[in-house]
Amino acid sequence: MRLTLIRHASLLIELGRQTFLVDPLMAPVSGFVFDGEEQRVYVAGDTVWCADVGDALDDHAPTVVVVNAGEARMTEGDPITMTAQDVLAVARHTPATVVAVHMEALNHCVLTRKDLAAKLADANLDVLIPADGETLMLAGA
């Protein structure tokens, strides 16, 4: 297995707002690409939908993308993990299997699995939302 580090731009520079508050707390933000024999898994980590995430999807063409959803927020400022619209954007951008995690177990996450599932269903998009403790196996072929 090969591991590649993806350096995302600072969240708030990408968003262009409230840089002075959150940027020093969050940046730099990193994702990882795990290269296996059958699957290439991009774990985006704590990031919102931004150009660097799109570039990573284009450059590495993963078969699986794991995104942190939950629309997590600090006490002030914009989301620091993906909103439902961000997850939709990822799913529209890539043919890979998209897995949305990072919801409900953390008290700064405001987006629930149920709300995300409803928005995905409305958009007719197929994204996996595993329960806590659930295992995802990729049988391939």
Binding site: T97, P130, G133, E134, T135, L136, A139, G140
Partner: peptide, 16 residues
């Protein structure tokens, strides 16, 4: 995908 129960936890299996 197939939805599996294993030791009271869920396992989701994706395959072609």
């Amino acid at each position: 995908r197939a939805h599996i129960r294993r030791h009271d936890r869920g396992v989701t299996v994706e395959a072609e």
